[in-house]
Each structure stands twice: as structure tokens, then as C-alpha cells.
């Protein structure tokens, strides 16, 4: 069953067409890779799905419901979580407090009922999740002081706490070393095993070819290919978009 259906999506910034008639489906419980050269509109697509940007044309259907025009927090409440290319954690709060905000976002409690301190139940849920991503030992550290790789994990943990059905990961391994990338692959696979559908934007081919079930390739705002990782690696249009027409074997 299709969890997310993007149809005829067009986004313009003045005269610049950032996305042109993009169409694709995301099937439940799959990992969809989204790749393309720099500036091809991957993050713009995320921002449209997530509600930060409003596309000019087309529709985005999540669980059969059009979500174009809803504000980001409403879309998040429907079950779409996301992380950012440049981590957007809350630098002066501790790791625990960072994740607490995610938990509160997912709980949909009223403001008045939240005028109390974090309960034991909430702390347990946070601890369980921090253990899942491997951050439990850093629980009480101020978020700006933890290493970059852990900040990326923290952002994922925070997004997981809103109980998303669809998780958008924007370059989860940018700026990480090879060991950390392996770690990140393991984490993403574990998340997928929890039954969460994932869309990943990534430049690190090792990661995307390993874990994606399907890959969508964008170039200059248009979808140029879609298919299994192995097919994509041999696709002429993809090679030409990345390396230039001269490299097609």
C-alpha cells in the first residue's frame, strides 16, 4: 500500500523551477533513497512534504489525504518526522531535554496538563529510546558539547519520539567518518525494522546503495530515474547527470 504519493509536484522560486512535475510513491515499510547532484531539489522536496514550503502545483497524499497547505506542526502530528541536513538540535538543552521536547510533540497533551515536571513514565520512554540509538551514556550532557555524529543521532532520536510512520532523513551521514557511517547504517536498519517507512537523502553511495529498497534520482528538479539500487547504478541518465555524458560506458 502506498503511504505517500507525490503527484505532479512543482515548486518555483520566482523564475527558478526547483521541482518540476515530480512524481513518486513510497510503499509502506520500505526505505526509499533520494539522490541527485547538488542543487537538484532534494531538500526542497523534503521541505514541501514537511510543510515548510508550499508547492505551486501538484499534490502530496499521506495515507490518502492531501497534506499540501497544512502547517509543519500539523503534518508532523499526522506522523511525518524529519531531520535536517545541518543538525538542528537545541544546543543549550541537555540530551534528555532535547528528546523530551520530541516526546511532548508526539503526546498531543494540552498546555495545562503539561504544566508539570516530566513524569517517570516519560523518563522511562526517553531512556528506552536513548538506549536504542546509543546515547544513554550522554543523557545529561549539554547537547552542544557532544560529538557531531552523536548530534545526528540525537536528532533522529528526537524525531522518533513523535511516533512517526514516515521518517525523512536529510543526509544522515554527511560529515561522518567511515566507522560512524557503518554505525548510522545499522541504526537506520533498526529503525526500519520497527515498521517505520524511511526516505533518505544522501550523497554517500555506500550508505544509500546498501540500505535502500528503491532509489529515486532527481536532476535539475526533475525525476530522471527510479528503481532498484543496482539498476540505478547502471542507468545512463544517472551516470550522465553525475559525471557528464562522456562517462557512459
Amino acid at each position: 500500500m502506498n503511504l505517500l504519493t507525490v503527484e505532479n509536484l512543482t515548486k518555483r522560486f520566482g523564475g527558478l523551477v526547483a521541482l518540476k512535475n515530480v512524481e513518486f510513491n513510497v510503499v509502506e515499510r520500505e526505505i526509499l533513497g533520494l539522490i541527485g547532484p547538488n542543487g537538484c531539489g532534494k531538500t526542497t522536496l523534503f521541505n514541501c512534504v514537511n510543510g515548510f514550503l508550499k508547492p505551486e502545483e501538484g499534490s502530496i497524499k499521506f495515507k490518502g489525504e492531501n497534506i499540501v497547505g497544512l502547517s509543519p506542526y500539523q503534518i508532523a502530528r499526522k506522523g511525518i518526522g524529519r531531520t535536517f541536513q545541518l543538525v538542528k538540535i537545541f544546543p543549550k538543552l541537555t540530551v534528555k531535554e532535547n528528546t523530551l521536547v520530541g516526546l511532548l510533540g508526539g503526546s498531543k497533551a494540552s498546555t495545562w496538563s503539561m504544566l508539570q515536571m516530566p513524569t517517570r513514565d516519560q523518563e522511562e520512554r526517553i531512556d528506552a529510546l536513548l538506549e536504542f540509538v546509543g546515547l544513554l551514556s550522554k543523557k545529561d550532557e549539554v547537547a552542544q558539547n557532544i560529538p557531531y555524529a552523536l548530534k545526528k543521532k540525537l536528532e533522529i532520536a528526537r524525531a522518533l519520539l513523535i511516533n512517526p510512520t514516515l521518517l525523512l532523513l536529510d543526509e544522515p551521514s554527511a560529515g561522518l567518518n567511515p566507522a560512524e557511517i557503518m554505525d548510522q547504517i545499522k541504526l537506520i536498519e533498526n529503525i526500519s525494522q520497527r515498521g517505520i517507512t524511511i526516505i533518505i537523502v544522501e550523497h554517500v553511495m555506500k550508505l544509500i546503495m546498501n540500505i535502500s529498497d528503491r532509489i529515486v534520482v532527481l536532476d535539475m528538479g526533475e525525476k530522471i530515474a527510479e528503481g532498484k539500487p543496482k539498476e540505478i547504478a547502471r542507468d545512463k541518465r544517472v551516470i550522465s547527470a553525475y559525471l557528464g555524458a562522456g562517462f557512459i560506458a
Binding site: 514537511n50 506542526y73 508532523a76 537545541f90 538543552l93 536528532e155 528526537r158
Partner: peptide
Amino acid sequence: AIREEEDAVKTLGL
């Protein structure tokens, strides 16, 4: 959290 990073708070459904 709103003081630190407003956009991130929005994506958490708040």
C-alpha cells in the same frame, strides 16, 4: 526549545 531552534520545534508537531 523554541528559543534555541524554532524550525525544529515545528517538525516535532508542536
